[in-house]
Amino acid sequence: MKIGVVTFPGSLDDRDAARAVERAGGIAVPLWHGSDDLKEVQAVILPGGFSYGDYLRCGAISRFAPVMKSIILAAEHGFPVLGICNGFQVLTEAHMLPGALTRNQGLHFLCTDQKLRIENNESMWTSGFEKNEEIVIPLKNGEGSFQCDDETLAMLEGEGRVVVRYLGQDPNGSRNLIAGISNARGNVVGLMPHPEHAIETLTGPSEDGLTFFTSILHQMVGR
């Protein structure tokens, strides 16, 4: 099972995402932003970081990278895509997911071990979780407050497209405490917290994040 991990200039958690893929039993394939070649991978992860320094808006420049053209096209045909943190921001900028990520309500960068609830275990990236399972994985960003209009919010909630929700104290002012969402088909998922940093208790708060990566590998095998 080959899963691509895209490196944009300024990507930071690309090597971590690759490590998580390998720990889950997959093969991580590095993809370069400047090439539209997806190297025959079966899914793609857009990792965390500050691509293009977050200049203009987070993700606003990366969405125009050559690699994104291929990813957008493939995703329309059901190709699985996971956007983590900056990757989620790229997905909203590319209109692959609705809404926008804005400055945290406290205006500070926030790095914390975040409690979350899996609201939807039917997406390709969360199928290994129990519905309503509670997990703890790191949240670390400056612009993680999910915002959208009322209509979009009603649609996301109504269609069960809220994939993960913050539990406990509101970390950043996201609408309805939304931490991650999916597209209608469930193949594209974006979330602000970092599952790749919770794959072993030695270096993370839990192993809960690993399930995101095993989920997709099981989905691919099932095909």
């Binding site: 490590r19 790095c111 670390k140």
Partner: peptide
């Protein structure tokens, strides 16, 4: 203070 710093990136912080 420390919650404004990323302590997880690179995945090797023990």
């Amino acid at each position: 203070v420390t919650s404004q710093y990323d302590k997880y990136v690179q995945g090797n912080s023990v």
